[in-house]
């Protein structure tokens, strides 16, 4: 059909029907015609992910952001001490390099997210969650981003498109103490096609 189309065009001056095509319905139609379903690959390093079943949609995998080493690091100071007892001139200054730039200081402080006793766990309402599920903590305020994250328009896949859905957690990309990405210098200079001298 495509080959004789130009001739038809010249003969009949037919109009090319391309306006107003609905992307959604077109791909739905195409999907229904597809005979072979593309095979879904398994994630090869499943240990690096947790299952996320708390969703209305299909469950997916979320990248782990925590490990034993980090937890032991917290426990080495925070075990058995209430936070209130860790302040004062007697104690060393700690976490001095963490400046919280996350909302206003009147709204947020360390214990907004970190559990008071077990600081390596995070608050969700009145309960606490493991760091690997800390997305639930973020979701309490950032519900819009959470919806987008579950949908797929916010965040990133840790794996290829053909693998089962395994996505990054909030803190895989965002530093929770300073979540805005901030200014950076672009990775390289732009392409200037008009610079003819450089290409010889």
């Amino acid at each position: 059909m495509k080959k004789i189309f130009p001739i038809l065009l010249i003969l009949t001056a037919a109009c090319h029907p391309h306006h107003g095509s609905n992307s959604k319905s077109k791909y739905k139609e195409l999907t229904n015609q597809v005979k072979n379903k593309v095979s879904v690959k398994e994630v090869f390093n499943k240990d690096n992910f947790v299952e996320w079943t708390e969703t209305k949609a299909q469950p997916f995998l979320v990248e782990k952001v925590w490990n034993e080493a980090k937890e032991n690091g917290c426990k080495s100071c925070h075990s058995g001490f209430a936070l209130s007892k860790m302040k004062g001139k007697k104690h060393k200054r700690a976490h001095w390099n963490i400046v919280l730039k996350h909302a206003d200081s009147k709204i947020m402080n360390c214990t907004t997210c970190h559990n008071d006793d077990e600081v390596w766990r995070f608050k969700v309402g009145k309960s606490k969650v493991h760091a690997n599920k800390s997305a639930k903590t973020c979701m309490q305020c950032h519900f819009k981003q959470a919806n987008d994250w579950e949908l797929g328009s916010h965040g990133k896949r840790s794996v290829g498109w053909q693998t089962e859905r395994a996505i990054k957690s909030c803190t895989s990309c965002h530093n929770p103490h300073r979540p805005v990405f901030g200014k950076r210098v672009p990775k390289l200079a732009p392409y200037r096609p008009e610079n003819n001298e450089e290409r010889l």
């Binding site: 791909y27 739905k28 195409l30 999907t31 597809v34 379903k37 593309v38 690959k41 299909q58 949908l151 797929g152 328009s153 916010h154 965040g155 990133k156 896949r157 290829g160 498109w161 053909q162 693998t163 859905r165 990054k168 990309c173 990405f181």
Partner: peptide, 29 residues
């Protein structure tokens, strides 16, 4: 079955790639 290099590299997750014929893919959603 892998993502293009640009999708992998983007630090803010601005790029999404997938199979349009898979109704569960992020791109369709």
């Amino acid at each position: 079955g892998e993502n293009p290099a640009c999708v992998e590299a983007c630090p803010t997750g601005a790029r999404v790639f997938g199979n349009l014929l898979d109704p569960n893919s992020e791109i369709r959603k």
